[in-house]
Amino acid sequence: MRRAVVTRLAWMIVVLFVLSFVVFSIQRTLPSDPVRIFFGRNASKELIAQKQHELGYDRSFFSQYGLFVNRLFHGDLGTSLRTRRPVVSDLMDFLPGTLELAGSAAFVGLLLALVIALTGALRRKGGAIVRVIAIVFSSAPTFLLGLGAVLLFYRHFHWLPAGGRTKSATEGNGWVLLRSIAKGSPSKTWEAIRHLAMPAVALALAPGVAIGRILRGSLLDVLEQEHIRTMRAGGLTERSIVLRHALRNALLPAISMGGLQLGLLLSGVVVVEVVFAWPGLGLYLNQAIRLADFPAVIGVVLVLGVVFVISSAVVDLLQTVADPRLRGRA
């Protein structure tokens, strides 16, 4: 077990290095010059040259990368050219918003997956309808789904807010949902959930349906297996057979699918945040790319990379929790 964790950590560092190097090379080969954008059209050549020297942009590529890595080890990702604040403090402001959104989406997605799988496997009436509707909606691109939801639930019914994380524009950062739960404020919690509802569902639909379809198929396979027949012959109720005996055996393929969907969820979150003006890493990244704010772009990519690597490791761990036969193997 410890060996597996150590291997994982080593891999995580390798992945992050490769990731940082790739993003770094892309930005250095792009034609856009952040310093020119930063000072505007009318800046003097001397001023630009001075700033470029200050930021190290006049040095060789590898020397710049070395500088970048050296600062990275000291927890310094540089200063955002756009917000003129340290990138690290920007990330600290926006990461919680993204984690709350992605976390809620993962929760909603798993719930959806379970509904699809269980109604299918227990052959409940209406299961097929739920499946068809879910598949139709999950086939639409996320941004279209988001826009449609805004038109319907905000513009037409006035049920849900169109965007943002709270009513006030200033309180957009940090752990909005978790803080209001911790404070025990039902009105603020409800407000946070109302804001989360549309973006989380839009983000959750595609992964939820993908996992649900896999889980349903695997559950139907497991229900044909001999040990399930043994349980039926033992007089167990169908409910406890499905929930206690079949489900855990059916989880493995669904967990693998979940691991694949994680990457899609993290790229989807960028799109959804833009559509719903959600102050998170995605929105921050979107604005940074437009202004060629390279330090900010690298910061977001690295943070999302860490989130992805950690959550994939958790997914792998879940496999061995679900199936005891996988334990004790390398």
């Binding site: 297996q225 001999e226 040990h227 027949r229 043994t230 349980m231 033992g234 005996h245 055996n249 199936d323």
Partner: peptide
Amino acid sequence: GAVFQDPLGALNPT
């Protein structure tokens, strides 16, 4: 009580 043929598959592996 019922006992089936395949002892390898007769018990819930989890």
